[in-house]
Amino acid sequence: MKNIDLTHCITENMTVYPGTEKPKLEAASTYERDGFKETLLTMFSHTGTHMDAPAHLFEQGASLDSYPADQFVGKGLVIDCRQYKEGQRIPMSCINAVRENADLAEFILFYTGWDSKWGTEEYFRNYPCITEEVADYLIASKKKGVGLDVISIDPISDANLTIHRKIFSESNMVIIENLTRVGEIGNDIFTFCALPMKFKNADGAPVRAIAIVK
């Protein structure tokens, strides 16, 4: 068995959604002064590799702390979408090409290779996004979640967050954004874990996402 870490490290200089403040990691206690180290973390709930809940967009939507832990672990499948370039949409044909495994999976991860642009301005430019038809499939097949190696499941230009709203208004699926190393997982079903920080009324939270591959 092999564990693959799919998580970007949180740093003060990391990539964040445009307009969001970068995280701060301040030394609250030091070895020299206090005999131990403690860090004060200040960051937004959708920092780095993170999970969105319906409460992100809807006042009455489910928050992450209300989910059972089982929601965050399950059978995953990677859909290789690297053939789709800037501004293109990932169609249902990508799902249909691996439909048997896609139907079995509880989490679908879309591999665009866009994480190679992490830390550059290109990361925000017209990354490939799924179609509404793909979102309909994810909802109808009652997936636990969907993950991507881009900054949002919606285009950066879509201020309405159309795909977010569709998923969260029609299901309690979670959305995991800013994954990395998805291309190392392979094409078979694997165990996916993405455990969010648990705080009250969590609209979203950083996660430590891993793939457990046989």
Results as ranks from 00 to 15, higher is better:
74 G>D: 13
208 R>V: 13
93 S>W: 04
191 T>H: 13
37 K>C: 13
36 F>K: 11
174 V>P: 01
89 R>Q: 04
65 D>N: 02
165 R>E: 08
135 A>F: 04
110 F>V: 06
213 V>C: 09
189 I>M: 12
114 W>G: 04
115 D>L: 07
203 D>K: 09
80 D>V: 10
124 F>N: 09
171 S>C: 02
76 G>R: 10
97 A>T: 03
122 E>V: 09
85 K>L: 04
85 K>S: 02
4 I>K: 05
209 A>I: 09
87 G>R: 05
207 V>G: 00
127 Y>T: 09
95 I>Q: 01
176 I>E: 01
2 K>P: 13
79 I>G: 00
149 D>Q: 07
150 V>H: 06
137 Y>P: 00
195 L>M: 10
214 K>T: 11
142 K>H: 12
48 G>I: 14
40 L>F: 15
67 Y>I: 08
62 A>G: 01
53 A>Q: 02
81 C>L: 14
84 Y>D: 06
142 K>T: 13
95 I>L: 12
102 A>Q: 02
207 V>H: 02
101 N>K: 08
193 C>L: 14
50 H>M: 09
197 M>E: 06
178 N>P: 02
84 Y>F: 13
121 E>D: 12
103 D>P: 06
16 V>I: 12
209 A>D: 03
208 R>D: 00
43 M>K: 08
210 I>S: 02
202 A>R: 00
82 R>V: 07
117 K>N: 05
69 A>T: 13
195 L>T: 15
81 C>Q: 09
164 H>W: 08
23 P>C: 15
68 P>N: 08
86 E>A: 03
95 I>C: 01
200 K>R: 06
156 I>P: 04
7 T>Y: 06
115 D>M: 12
184 E>Q: 04
118 W>K: 02
151 I>T: 11
209 A>L: 08
214 K>V: 14
19 G>W: 11
49 T>N: 00
71 Q>C: 07
177 E>D: 06
102 A>E: 00
3 N>H: 15
109 L>T: 02
65 D>V: 03
25 L>R: 14
194 A>C: 09
112 T>Q: 02
47 T>R: 15
81 C>R: 10
210 I>H: 02
30 T>E: 03
2 K>D: 15
131 T>I: 05
98 V>N: 03
157 S>G: 08
103 D>R: 08
98 V>C: 05
17 Y>V: 12
184 E>Y: 06
173 M>P: 04
24 K>Y: 15
74 G>A: 12
52 D>V: 03
179 L>D: 01
